[in-house]
């Protein structure tokens, strides 16, 4: 019983985190057909800038709860800056090239940003623990949980709703859906794809940075955090279906619950459970659970 509760709560918390991290990735892929390896770096950038800003914030006498706003603001700012540099500066030059080539280009950007982060912030880990402790602890069935972790579930829900609303209830969102569905026709209909691409990449980048910023208080921000995140996020979006927003939700839930179950019941398999699930899903449904099968060109 206790274990079941723990699996559900841990799984949900982890799934929320995965969702926040992966949704930007899938959005960018859906619209631009770019599997952005540098998403891991955006996560790292978000985490570092948040940790750094929060360190400064708590040295002043400002109200501690304001740190949450600072956290989010820093992610937005760094995400926007990074997206401008990456998309306008580099990726723009490669539109129309092979998907795989662009993946490699983002891998190159990832390598560059890894060292960039090191140059700016050094190799010593950064802490931003204050917001994490601020919310305190709650007991569920005798198990202590950090409220900050539980709050992540809410944040993920809000982000999910915002993205859903943005895509389905706004004009730009509808244009985006049109581009996702068929880029060539959309261009022919006069949609400014360039602008949409820049915008989408910016939103995706901000979401990636936000993932990092929201995680920063619970961890010690150190070099290399981006590498781990990117493979996990890949797994989530592939399971859910590349480019599918509901897919990310389901993918994150599956991965989150499976991992939590593995940790509690069969710790030995924890290391590869995610890849096993990913392989299984791909074997049964190559396009992912929510992906659309590609129309074959003749």
């Amino acid at each position: 019983m206790l274990t079941t509760v723990a699996i559900l709560v841990d799984g949900l918390v982890y799934a929320s985190w995965l969702f926040i991290v992966a949704i930007g990735l899938t959005l960018i892929y859906g619209v631009m057909k770019i599997l952005n390896v540098a998403h891991g770096s955006l996560y790292a950038l978000g985490a570092y800038s948040a940790a750094w800003i929060i360190g400064i914030y708590f040295q002043s006498d400002l109200p501690p709860y304001g740190s949450f706003a600072v956290l989010i603001l820093s992610a937005v700012v760094i995400g926007l800056i990074a997206s401008l540099v990456i998309e306008r500066g580099v990726l723009r030059l490669m539109y129309g090239r092979d998907e795989i080539v662009i993946v490699l280009a983002t891998f190159a950007i990832f390598l560059i940003l890894e060292d960039f982060v090191k140059l700016v912030w050094g190799v010593d880990p950064y802490f931003a623990y204050q917001p994490y402790g601020l919310l305190g602890r709650v007991r569920l069935f005798g198990l202590g949980f950090a409220i900050y972790d539980l709050a992540l579930i809410g944040v993920a829900a809000v982000i999910g709703l915002l993205v859903w609303w943005g895509l389905n209830r706004t004009r730009i969102g509808k244009l985006l859906l049109a581009v996702i569905y068929d880029r060539e026709i959309s261009v022919a209909m006069g949609i400014n794809v360039n602008l949409l691409f820049a915008g989408t990449f910016a939103v995706g980048a901000v979401l990636g940075a936000l993932g990092g910023a929201l995680t920063a208080p619970a961890i010690s921000v150190s070099p290399g955090i981006g590498v781990e995140v990117i493979v996990l996020a890949f797994a989530v979006v592939v399971i859910g279906g590349l480019g599918s927003v509901p897919g990310v939700l389901i993918g994150a839930l599956i991965v989150g619950i499976c991992r939590a179950a593995a940790v509690h019941l069969l710790p030995e398999v924890e290391l590869f459970i995610i890849y096993a699930v990913m392989s299984l899903v791909l074997a049964l449904r190559p396009q992912g659970l929510f992906g659309r099968a590609a129309v074959r060109k003749i």
Partner: peptide
């Protein structure tokens, strides 16, 4: 480098 130990800490607590 997992960084997130939510489930593991639960298992330890349980």
């Amino acid at each position: 480098f997992a960084g997130q130990y939510g489930a593991e800490i639960s298992a330890l607590l349980v």
